[in-house]
Amino acid sequence: MTKRDLICVSCPIGCAITVELDDNNEVISVTGNTCPRGDKYARQECTHPERMLTSTVKVEGAKLPVVPVKSASPIPKEMLFDCMEEINKVSLTAPVRIGDKVIENILGTGVDIVATNNAL
């Protein structure tokens, strides 16, 4: 059995979480979290770590040259840079509205990249 100490990144509180893992890296217990998100994060982090990705994409014809985007849900941590490459290939034309899909199912992750501000 091994123990892993984590800081939950689900929200800015940053709970200190301890995860007990068995020899097959299966989670036995999660302690120290103060909400269900912490439990979910800890299990995920010990098996398939994921992160939210935020960036900007080019936009033509708006007041500003870029519009911010995010992954609609977390994506596998090891794919962050590959996803950045895809995001940097995109160029949009105004108007763009909050929630507009910018890339559908980025690199087969099942996660969409969506706009997080209006570009009018």
Partner: peptide, 12 residues
């Protein structure tokens, strides 16, 4: 996360 119970970006 506290106020809306969701994880938003600043502009959102």
């Amino acid at each position: 996360l506290h106020y809306f119970g969701e994880e938003l970006s600043g502009p959102e």
